[in-house]
Each structure stands twice: as structure tokens, then as C-alpha cells.
Design a protein around this nucleic acid. Sequence first.
DNA 1: GGTATCCATGGAAGCGGTTTCACGAACTGC
DNA 2: GCAGTTCGTGAAACCGCTTCCATGGATACC
Lengths: 342, 342
Amino acid sequence: MEAVSRTAATLDQVARAAGVSRATASRVFSGNLRVSEEARRAVESAATRLGYVANSAARSLAAGRSESVGVVVPEPGSGHFLDPLLSRLLRGIGEELSASGLQMVLFSPQSPADVQRLEQYLVGGHVDAVLMLALHESDTLPARLHARGIPMVFGGRPPQSQEVSFVDVDNHAGGRAATEHLIKQGRRRIAHIAGPDHSAAARARLAGFREAMWSAGLRSDFVDYGDLDRDGGELAMGRLLATADDIDAVFAASDAMAAGAMWALQVLGRRVPDDVAVIGFDDSPIASATRPPLSSVRQPVEDMGREMAKLAVSLSGVRDQSPRQMVLSPELSVRESTVASR
Amino acid sequence: MEAVSRTAATLDQVARAAGVSRATASRVFSGNLRVSEEARRAVESAATRLGYVANSAARSLAAGRSESVGVVVPEPGSGHFLDPLLSRLLRGIGEELSASGLQMVLFSPQSPADVQRLEQYLVGGHVDAVLMLALHESDTLPARLHARGIPMVFGGRPPQSQEVSFVDVDNHAGGRAATEHLIKQGRRRIAHIAGPDHSAAARARLAGFREAMWSAGLRSDFVDYGDLDRDGGELAMGRLLATADDIDAVFAASDAMAAGAMWALQVLGRRVPDDVAVIGFDDSPIASATRPPLSSVRQPVEDMGREMAKLAVSLSGVRDQSPRQMVLSPELSVRESTVASR
DNA sequence: GGTATCCATGGAAGCGGTTTCACGAACTGC
DNA sequence: GCAGTTCGTGAAACCGCTTCCATGGATACC
């Protein structure tokens, strides 16, 4: 390979070196069929020789598309359930986008000013599509993006779900699966530690729990609430035991709460899983670090990311953007906290 | 605000509406001082009226800088210690970049082909700077980026650390602090469960442990190794106890290993912290989910991200890019696993 | 053999900004 | 009052690529 000059080679130089016009060289890179085999070879060889890489700014400007997708992640500390899953999700998104040759531009607005700027940026047409990982208050965004014809895909079901495209995990099914697993293990007096009521995901998990219990003809009123973290789980467990001390299983809406619940049980001398089985949700690192290791519901977060990206890609550039939606099923990750000892 | 047309307003339209030339309008947005107060006001009002947002592709092309910074994160599954900290780190980076009006472009190359493409992309001058969160095999990258004058900042000390800029957490100091904390609690026979020897971070933590023990005149040879996950910790703890069953404290190089060690101890009837104190590293979610909650060493990961971004910004556009390095100190996060019961 | 069709190609006009340069008006200093 | 600055401004030349359009040679058809 020739010495790669300090300043990047341009299409013009490549074309000149290949003995063709800029237009033809451009066609080669855009995969245009209308190029002779001969010209194509000349251009390609010149390109490698010069170490040519297309200037994306110029390409975007000329072609009117940015070759990049914006990803908006929620601000932290909001106790959003997504947080621990974020890196898995981004991974899935990145994988799919990079397969399509798209760049991923990450936004994590902190202040209202950031949100404002972000909105301008997105509406300004600097990205070909937007993936939203949480509903920022900015409810105007969907409408404005839509008006500009910029596809937008939500991760997790947004409030006004009918109008927009989204990919979600089936929290209802997850809650049901967790509960059915406990029932199958012979448990009968099963409690649920639910997440905050304002969270749609938490409500769906609760509903799944209720449905499974009803179907099995069991009482479904051993329910308490926590704020998704460990202490919330511990407190809720205490309250539940005070109400009904013969509970034989607990399904918590998060692993952290499940860990807290386990603690509360063990402090009171209950053995897990022999006396009380415990199952969490998310299959986070916590699940394999508790004693005993925690059964959990694993959300297919990587798949979710991939599907979001796919959806965005298939939506962009299309005139008709009727919203599409997709719901992924979580699966059980069974560990020792729910299987009666050998 | 006027109806924002479907297609974004251009600088030209703004200039026309304000009754000035494109050049003057451009000066207003670039913060150029040479503009009369009158013209500035006219342009600004026209801009808000039309909902103008600069087209970043055009700006990049004309100005020769991309207003964006590439962030390369390690592929997953490699058991890299960064993984659980990733979202915190990205947060810090994003915060700082967005304050400078820069975009963050995320890369997570999976295949060798991805790495190849990435390298081309970065070298192609599409970003103003690069933040590397792990040493991909592609050792040629630093040199090539340097040749192009593209600043690059590593997160975590790279192998050949003298030549490049980086921000790292002081693992040595962290290891020392953890150990000294145990000593201060009156522990004397302290063991260390180290991470894999090929990891520089793991070696530094071990060195910190040794230094603290030597300084206190204590034996520092209760050392075993694990692969950073829970099972590794459990196994290592078993081996350590087989060697010396009167160990009264353990410092593990990761929270997961600490959790595993705690389990091993408790299975053998040791009480934590009464018989044996346990401390981890990373202050991950696991730390607050164990029973008892785990003391740990908290890495200032957000700060690390912020500093990396700052460094990149200050480096870009500067002719002389003599490498700068920065080492951040971790701090102790004390919980019940190391404080003798009340 | 002549005309219609096809196809690879090059010329050239943008895409939407930034920045150099020249210019006139308004200052300054003596 | 005049030369020398300073300052705001607009015209115009790019930045590197895509794409429309015209062209001309080769092929197809009758």
C-alpha cells in the first residue's frame, strides 16, 4: 500500500487515478449497476491503493440522507428499569445498524436545555431515523418528527401507543411465566412484589401474575409494592409476611427487590427455596450473585435492540409509515431460588 | 411560531428573511464578533421564526470538522471489567460532550470486518476525536490516527501507555484503600482474590493489596486467582480456606467474586463480617444486593468519562498533541460486610 | 441500411454551509 | 482636512460527493 497521505484521499483523486470521471467513480461506490466491469476494477484498485474512504459529510449533504440513526436514552437516576439493561440494548442496536452500514449517534439529554437542543437536532434532519428508549416529557417530538417524515421507533410501549412504532417486551407474559413456574413447583400461596404503579411495565407484570393465579384458582391478593430497588423489596416482604406468614413463594418485579425479599425472609429464618421460593425479573448480574442464585425472567434485550434497528431501517425512506409494533417474549432463567433442594 | 415547513429552513432562507447576506447570517451562528447588533438581532429573530437548525453535514463539509466524537466500546462477552460500568461511563462522556455541542457516535465492532471498517471510518476523518474504551487488537489504529492528527484518548491504561493520552482509575490505590480499610477494622490475616493476571487492572489491585499489607507488617501471601465472576470467587475462597482456615478478611478484585467468596464462607459456617470481613471492587449493583451488603471500591466512572471527553476536546484542533494522562482515585463504599456487628 | 433503443460515461449543477477577499463607510490621529 | 485604520458586509470560491442530463458508441429491430 502506498504511503497514505496525511490528508484523506478524495473521490476526485481516485477517479483521476483510475482514469475515469468522478461520476463513474461515485457510481462504483454507490453500487450502481451501470458501470463497466473494467471501470469498476480500475476504480476499486485505485481506491485501495489510495486508502480512500468516502467523506460522510459530503455524502450526506449531496445525497440528502445522513447514514446515521439517533438513539435517545433516558436520563439516569430516574429509576428507570432500562438502566441496567442499557448496554445490552445498545449492543443489539449497534450490531444491526452496523450491518446496514449506519452510524449510531447517542443522545442522553440531561437538562431541559439538552432536550430542547436534541429536539431541534433531530427535527433538523440530521439523522435518518430515531430510536427512543424512553418517553421524555417532550411529547411534541413524535408529532414533529412525523411531520418531517423521520421514522421513529420506541423501545418499550409509549403512552399513546397506537400512533407510533415500537418494540416491547411482553411484561404480561413474563409475569405470567414467572408465576406459572412457581405454581408448577407446587407453590400455592404466592405473593407478588410489584413495581411502582405508574410504570406500565410494572402494571403488566402484576397483571400477568394475577392472570396466572386466577387460572390456577389461587388467591392473587398477596401483593405489595416497592420502588424496584433492594430496600423496597425488603420492606415489602416484611409487610407481606406480617399479613400472611404462610406465604410459600414470592415473585418480585425486579432482581434487586427479589434480593431484598430474600434477605428479609432469611432474617426471619425462612429457608429459600425450601420454605419460600423467590423469583425476580430482568436476569441482571444480581441474579447470579445472590445466595442462593436467583431465578429470574430474562428479557430479550439484545433482540429488542436489533428489532428496533431493523424497524427503523425498513421504515426510513418509505413514504407510507404506518406504525408497526412488535412484542418480544421473555424467557425463564431458572436457578436455585425456586427449585426445592435435592 | 410560524408553521414549520416540512423541509428544514436553510441559512439562505434565514438570511433572506433577515435582509442580510448568507455570509453575515453564518457569522451570527458561528459566534463571530464582527456583526452589528442590528444584523444579529434580525438574523436571530428570523432563525427562530423559521425554526432554523444548521445542517450539520454542510457545516462539517465546509468547516472541515465533524462536530462529533467517536466512542469505541469493547465487544461484550470478553468478560471485560468495563461492561457493567459502561452506561455510567457513557453518561459521563455524553454529558461533557453535549456541553461542548459535540455529538457522540458510538461504535461497538463485533467482527474483524467491523473493526476494519471502523478503522477506515475513523481514519477517514469523520470524527474530530476518538475515545477508546478498550484495546482492540488493532494496534495499528493509534499510529494511524496520530498520523492523521486525530486526537485519541484511552479509557483505562493501554499497553503502550507512554505514547498516548489516557484517563485511568488508580487501581493500585483502590487495592491499597480496600486493604487498609480491612486492617483498620482490626483484621490481620487478610486474603486477596485477584483477577486474571493478564489484566493490568487486576495486577494493580493486587500490588495495592501487597503494598498495604507490607506497610502494616502483615503477611501478604494469601492470594488466589479467579476469573472475575461469582463462581471464580467461590472456588478461590475454597482454596484459600483450605490453605489457611483462620483468614479473617477477604478483598476480592470484583463484586461478583466477593459475592461468591461470601457464599463459600457462609456455606462453611463462617459469619460475615463477624468471622470474616469481605470487600469487593466496582461498587456494582451486586454490592447492595448481597447479604450482608458488600463493602466495595467505587470507581469514579462518570468522572472518568467526563475527563476523557474534556481531554479529547482540548486536544482536538491543537497542533501539538503531546500525550496527556490522568489518573483518578477510587473511593471506598463501606457497607455491612466489613464492619463488625453492632 | 437506416432508425430506434440501450447503456456506459463525463460534464455540470447542485447540496448548505464557511471563509477569504475586496470594498465602502465610519472612525482615528495629526 | 487628509491619510491611515478599523469595521461590518456581500460576492464568490470552495468543501467532496450525488445525480440529472446530454452524448456518442454499440446493439437491436424492421
